[in-house]
Each structure stands twice: as structure tokens, then as C-alpha cells.
């Protein structure tokens, strides 16, 4: 429910910079994405839940897992470029199939002082 654990020690912001620190170098666009799916049992339960309303816990979990993994991948790319922060981060999701979600996160990899 909170911030992802593994960002490889990088700072992430979705404003133009890391407040209080100057950007020394930048390395361009980095992105992370993942496509995840829940098994049919959860799909079935979700269909039942669709009748009654309320939060679909299984799918929330699904998106959380996807978010964590996507961020981790973006940070892995940034790390490989020698960055220590990613700024101007944006998210995007789409559904590629019933019961599966694609999560995409992208930003600019930078080196801050």
C-alpha cells in the first residue's frame, strides 16, 4: 500500500527536479513496464463481486504488484546509465486482456548533485 521497496536507491519525483538539488547530467528517457495477470479463480470471484459492488481487492493487489515491478525495472535502466534520480515520472496503464493489466512508468534519468 506504500512506496515500493526496491528503487535501487534512486530518488523518484514527478516534478522537474529533486527539490534542493541541482541536476548535473541527464541521460534521457527510461521506462519500466510489466504485464500481469490474475488466475481464473480470482477472475470468477471478481465477476461475482461485480454484482455486489465494492473494491476488487485482487485487482488492486495486481496493480500494486505491477506498479512495484515497473518502477523497479525503470530504476534498473536508470541505474545502468549511472543515474541517481529519475524525474518527471509518469504512469500509464492499459488492459491487454480481460483480467490482465499493463503498467508503464517512464521518466528522465538524471544525475543530481
Amino acid at each position: 500500500m506504500s512506496a515500493p521497496e526496491s528503487t535501487h536507491g534512486l530518488l523518484l519525483t514527478n516534478i522537474e527536479s529533486v527539490p534542493g538539488r541541482a541536476i548535473v547530467e541527464h541521460y534521457g528517457l527510461v521506462s519500466g513496464s510489466t504485464v500481469r495477470s490474475k488466475h481464473v479463480g480470482r477472475d470468477l470471484l471478481a465477476s461475482v463481486r461485480n454484482v455486489f459492488g465494492g473494491e476488487l481487492k485482487a485487482y488492486t493487489e495486481l496493480l500494486e504488484e505491477a506498479r512495484d515491478e515497473a518502477i523497479e525495472r525503470m530504476c534498473a535502466q536508470a541505474r545502468a546509465l549511472g543515474a541517481n534520480a529519475v524525474v518527471n515520472v509518469r504512469f500509464s496503464t492499459s488492459s491487454v486482456a480481460a483480467g490482465a493489466a499493463e503498467l508503464y512508468v517512464y521518466g528522465t534519468a538524471v544525475q543530481v548533485a
Binding site: 504485464v35 500481469r36 495477470s37 486482456a97 490482465a100
Partner: peptide, 21 residues
């Protein structure tokens, strides 16, 4: 489709999306 049945990471779509992006 098989992966959708069991749940988990759908690696087939991941490479598709990587290419397209």
C-alpha cells in the same frame, strides 16, 4: 492466454509492448 489462466507475469505481451514502445 494460458498465462492468463494461471496468473503471473505475461511475458509474451511484455516483449510485444517493449517492441511497440
Amino acid at each position: 492466454s494460458l498465462r492468463n489462466f494461471f496468473g503471473g507475469r505475461v511475458s509474451a505481451y511484455e516483449s510485444l509492448l517493449d517492441r511497440a514502445r
